[in-house]
């Protein structure tokens, strides 16, 4: 469904953010990307979204190569990024302007009900709490019914309780529409709660270190043995990914560096 092949991204400064990443996802699958900072998770997401161009390799959705933002791919950012001059309803309808007004309204009402914000249509974004704003952002991304939904650490700025409730909202929305979801997260528990598969990435240059399948049914109890075992495997993989790439001191560097 979503096929990433030998994807490489080198920035103008010469940093290789991603090196030869291949990943293929089935329709409706949820994959979480975890890894230390600088391992190219966000770069990967931006390439899949078509916001950046790859230096090598390709991304394809149902066989169509992604070169620019694409109706089949929705993106949820780290921050809600609601447009402050539009009401909540107009924000959600932002990607629906090609539809008749009535259909837009119906979809907005339905989306708001789904995320527990029914009746919030006419609020301004500034009147929402962080969790409410992110729920509106999720609704906005899902309203045009994309086949692939990308999430860039969407809950990292929220407190633990809000995050847990948003996990539930997200899973309910996913169950209704079954988009393929690729999400970047720093939070191992979040990855185990949501994902079918966790991809551990390794920094400098960013590449895939390990893939861990999480195949016990949702909802997942964070105190269950299976949950704790999955968490342990991911943490071990993360440890491995970091220790292997830890830079070794170069012999010719130390005296000069000391002088400076």
């Amino acid at each position: 469904m979503l096929t990433i092949e030998a994807l490489t991204k080198t920035y103008a400064g010469g940093t290789t953010a991603l090196s030869n990443v291949s990943l293929s996802m089935q329709a409706g699958e949820i994959v979480a990307l975890v890894g230390g900072s600088g391992c190219g998770k966000t770069t990967l997401l931006r390439l899949v979204a078509g916001l950046d161009r790859p230096s090598g390799g390709s991304v394809a959705v149902d066989g169509n190569v992604v070169t620019e933002p694409n109706a089949a791919v929705g993106l949820i950012f780290q921050e809600p990024r609601l447009l402050p001059w539009l009401s909540v309803a107009d924000n959600i309808a932002f990607g629906l302007k090609h539809l008749p007004r009535k259909e837009q309204r119906a979809r907005v009402d339905f989306a708001l009900m789904r995320v527990g914000l029914a009746g919030y249509n006419d609020r301004w974004p500034r009147q929402l709490s962080g969790g409410q704003a992110q729920r509106v952002a999720i609704s906005r991304a899902l309203a045009p019914e994309p086949k692939v939904l990308l999430l860039d650490e969407p809950f990292s700025a929220l407190d633990a309780f809000t995050r847990a409730s948003l996990h539930d909202h997200l899973l309910a929305l996913w169950a209704a529409q079954r988009p393929t979801m690729l999400m970047v997260t720093h939070d191992v528990e979040e990855a185990v709660t949501l994902a079918d598969r966790v991809v551990v990435m390794q920094p400098r240059p960013g590449r895939i270190f390990a893939q861990i399948a999480i195949d016990f049914p949702r909802p997942r109890d964070p105190l269950s043995d299976a949950f704790i075992a999955a968490k342990r495997r991911i943490l071990e993989a993360l440890d491995g990914s970091l220790s292997e790439s830890r830079p070794k001191p170069k012999p010719d560097e130390s005296p000069a560096a000391a002088w400076w």
């Binding site: 916001l51 620019e68 929705g74 950012f77 921050e79 990024r81 447009l83």
Partner: peptide, 21 residues
């Protein structure tokens, strides 16, 4: 830039970007 990217994700043309963002 973050709001402009929202417009890009929703595939706005240059004229739409001007008018809507």
């Amino acid at each position: 830039r973050k709001l402009v990217e929202v417009g890009q994700v929703f595939r706005l043309s240059q004229a739409q970007m001007l008018r809507r963002i």
